[in-house]
Design a binder for these strands. Structure first.
Lengths: 143, 143
DNA sequence: TGATATAGTTACCTAGGGTAACCATTTAAA
DNA sequence: TTTAAATGGTTACCCTAGGTAACTATATCA
């Protein structure tokens, strides 16, 4: 019964990420850029290290993503006491784009999940989160 | 409630795929190579197009994966009536490696899922499969 | 027999992330 | 307070993995 769990889980990844990238592509974004916008929107002005930690990627990855978003004028740096760090916030244009994409992503989610009951969804969420915890513990042990 | 579903789902991907790749790396494999071995093991001698369809990737992707597995002497071509196609099967070495990896992957799955009840798992599987169906329908419509 | 479809390959390109080495600034310690 | 260590960020270089277009070889259908 357990066997094949990972297969089942991973099989969904490619179709989901391509749906998202197709959607976000219309705004010159990709899911990896969206993650940064999403993080800043939900945590307020953020440093690159914060964002990197959240998504378990290295700093250079976030440097790249952020500089790309700067080029698109969707985020901007604001002053902070610590002059090493780069505190980023959304520009008005960034806020607009967030709202537009948020709407479309929610529609996509609704479409994909429409056949599922409230209970099913609830329990799916919980399972995901338990697995994440378990994985985190496992990682923790290895160090 | 719906909002953020995708985030939750996708957040698990990186840690899972890296656990797997770490595990498979010990055998000079990666998850994408493993998929091919897995497919052939479970479907018998297979053509590249079959494999490509199953994983929703393009043909050149599978050409690359397969030729890599040939270099590792894990798969080999067998004759088929249709001389255009390349029917691949596992070599004895490939079978051995399948068994070894299968064992380790099952252990990993057990570790990750140990805290979940039979019911929880069952319903998680079902939800995954419903979502996949829904997505397939959606794709179908677009064509 | 000729047109069309199918299986596979090659060459080229892109996205996305990691590592190592490096600044600049801040914090802690001597 | 001056020096050493830690932290935030960037740069350069490399790797993995996949897509597209163009092509060959074979098979099928009209």
């Amino acid at each position: 019964m357990l066997e094949g769990f990972l297969q089942q889980y991973l099989r969904l990844y490619r179709p989901l990420i391509s749906s998202l990238n197709e959607l976000l592509g219309k705004y010159n974004l990709s899911y990896s850029l969206w993650q940064v916008i999403y993080y800043i929107k939900h945590h307020g002005p953020s440093t690159l290290v914060e964002i990197a930690k959240r998504y378990s990627v290295e700093k250079p990855t976030i440097t790249r993503r952020v500089s790309c978003l700067e080029d698109l004028q969707l985020v901007e740096k604001i002053e902070s006491r610590d002059r090493r760090e780069k505190l980023m916030q959304l520009t008005p244009k960034g806020e607009e784009l967030y709202a537009a994409c948020r709407k479309e992503i929610s529609n996509l989610e609704r479409e994909i999940l429409e056949k599922l009951s409230e209970n099913e969804l609830q329990s799916f969420f919980e399972t995901l989160s338990k697995i994440r915890q378990q994985l985190a513990e496992k990682e923790g042990k290895q160090k």
